[in-house]
Design a protein around this nucleic acid. Structure first.
Lengths: 139, 139
DNA sequence: TCACTCTTAACGGAGAGTTTCACGCCCCGG
DNA sequence: CCGGGGCGTGAAACTCTCCGTTAAGAGTGA
């Protein structure tokens, strides 16, 4: 099972926005794309999905761009992943009537555990970690 | 992110084998396939992968078939998933030099957590749960 | 030898994921 | 009020993995 590029792009974009959140600066799509090596036109679609889930916010017109819709401490990796991929561990065959119930429960348990795990990682911490690591080079 | 049918098939097949493990009975591919609604010819490929990872064992010739290679208590859902899918949460872009290290670590943390979670579910328990649930209908 | 089973490799359709393109819309400054 | 610079949206093209099928090979017991 591979983490799709799309959710990786989404996570990187949100991280970039989290870094600039304290400055209150809006970031253009081009900026986000160049900074993370993401195709700009693809990133637009991702940002729209993130916006519909109230993770980012957009400002139109000249001087427009994107910023976080909420505090970095309120945005988790799990929210971003579920926004892009829906339920993270979904066995669609599990709805069949003759499907072994014990397995269905096992999948559900994994799903819930994964949700809890990814929701424990929020972007405030990620942005801080990145800043700390980067500042070490200046000591 | 969807659980692929392939790993679902694998889990169901191993579960069937776990149920019959105490009886020491071998199961033919056709049997496993019919019992779980899996295309037989596809299941063969899955069983071969499971065999190469020492999860199941095969007996050739007439009266041949498949059985577990180890005790049901020693086989976990995580082993089956990793056998089919490799590392469960792999961000291949994470090896790029300019990739944010804090994100790379976050993915790693998720991966390790998921491995621990899926390895905590072994097939002995699953088979018991299924048997208990089925016996309730006979009370 | 024959019947039965697993073993292995190769093929192709279907569908999702990725990327690009074109055009419409909205807001601000002049 | 109008035009440029940004976002918004949908659709087409392309790639690639997944899923399933087919067919020929090889081991085992009767």
């Amino acid at each position: 099972m591979k983490l799709s590029v799309k959710s990786d792009y989404a996570a990187r974009a949100v991280l970039s926005l989290a870094r600039n959140h304290s400055k209150g600066r809006v970031m253009k799509v081009e900026e986000l794309a160049a900074e993370n090596g993401i195709p700009a036109n693809y990133l637009v679609q991702i940002l729209i999905e993130l916006k519909s889930r109230n993770i980012v916010r957009s400002v139109r017109g000249k001087e427009g761009g994107y910023l976080l819709a909420r505090l970095p401490s309120e945005i988790t990796l799990g929210q971003v992943l579920r926004c892009i991929h829906g339920p993270i561990f979904e066995a669609d065959a599990a709805s069949e009537p003759l499907y072994p119930p014990e397995l269905r429960e096992a999948w559900k348990k994994v799903q819930e555990g994964l949700d809890a795990l990814t929701d424990s990682i929020h972007f405030e911490k990620l942005a801080e970690d990145g800043a700390a690591k980067r500042s070490m080079y200046y000591i």
